[in-house]
């Protein structure tokens, strides 16, 4: 066997490099997967303790609005009803999405359909800046500007779902906008040309052709925005009022899942029911974020099938 044949038949440095590189990068991603699974596992275990160790019923947890985990209620059961928080979380999320979506679509349309060059150049930095502002700053502005404004218009304290929604509206606006832009850009150009050639106006083209073709993408964008709103903690906590009461109006103080966690976690002792109850709130948050994730996948898949 000559030297050349030897080299062809035997592994070399390069063989070892590839094995090494693949192993190292696989370890990295494996580590990340283990960490993610352990986050979900730990929160699930602690969140379920309320139901398995303290024997609170799931129905009571979801549908009762008495949140006072330190005390027993009339029925001798601990008062662990998260209804108020769940309602408030969904309320701020939905309201913020309803407020943000039209603006997001308008900005996205302006950047892709009306003034693709100038508009994009001008508005891209606006979106990036809105993303860049940290949530505590949004919360702070909400506290010193929005809450007093609501107080002077509607009376009351000014804290509540309305203030929370307005703050979240601005926070999720860039998320929905940039994803909507992506989906508008994926609408093939011949759709536009065909529609305009048929004599349709720009608005007819946008409304009947482009928005329809981009609908799955826009829905995905909205769900992404809602996921962000649902999980946002500090900005909401600063303006929601932090009272674990079922909201009676848009301007009455209440608490969301995240705000309750933020403000109470430091005051409870590990392993006690009040603490376990908070972990159950965290579990609800976790489940919701997984549901949002699934929703995005389902909507995205449907969009693919249509095309």
């Amino acid at each position: 066997m000559n030297k050349m044949q030897q080299r062809l038949l035997h592994p070399s440095k390069a063989t070892r490099q590839d094995r090494f590189g693949k192993t190292i990068s696989l370890i990295c991603i494996g580590f990340i997967m283990i960490l993610t699974v352990s986050i979900i596992g730990f929160i699930a275990i602690h969140g379920l303790a309320t139901f398995f160790e303290n024997h609170v019923s799931v129905m009571q947890f979801i549908f009762s609005s008495n949140w006072n985990p330190g005390q027993l209620g009339k029925n001798g059961q601990p008062q662990v009803g998260a209804f108020a928080m769940i309602v408030a979380s969904f309320a701020v999320t939905l309201l913020a999405a309803i407020l943000a979506t039209p603006f997001a679509i308008a900005v996205a349309l302006y950047m892709t359909e009306l003034a693709p060059k100038r508009g994009a150049k001008m508005l891209q930095p606006v979106i990036e800046l809105l993303v860049g502002i940290p949530s505590v700053v949004y919360g702070f502005i909400g506290l010193v500007v929005i809450v007093p404004a609501i107080r002077s218009v509607f009376g009351g304290t000014g804290f509540g779902i309305l203030a929370g929604s307005i703050v979240l509206f601005v926070m999720i606006l860039p998320t929905i906008t940039s994803l909507t832009i992506d989906s508008l850009q994926q609408v093939p150009d011949h759709y536009r040309k065909a529609s305009l050639a048929l004599g349709a106006t720009k608005w007819q083209t946008i409304y009947k052709v482009i928005l329809r073709a981009a609908l799955p993408g826009i829905l995905t964008a909205i769900v992404f925005g809602m996921a962000r709103a649902f999980g946002e903690a500090l900005a909401v906590q600063m303006v929601i009022g932090n009272a674990a009461l079922t909201p009676t109006s848009l301007t009455s103080p209440t608490a969301t899942l995240t705000s309750q966690l933020t403000s109470q976690m430091g005051d409870t002792i590990m392993g006690t029911l009040p603490n376990n109850a908070l972990w159950s709130l965290a579990l609800v948050l976790l489940i919701m974020s997984v549901i949002f994730n699934l929703l995005i996948k389902v909507v995205g898949k449907r969009g693919e099938m249509k095309k």
Partner: peptide
């Protein structure tokens, strides 16, 4: 190639 079948599994493709 070089009297070896280089389309086999245990061949050093980098050297090939």
């Amino acid at each position: 190639y070089q009297d070896i079948d280089i389309n086999r599994k245990n061949i050093n493709v980098y050297e090939v």
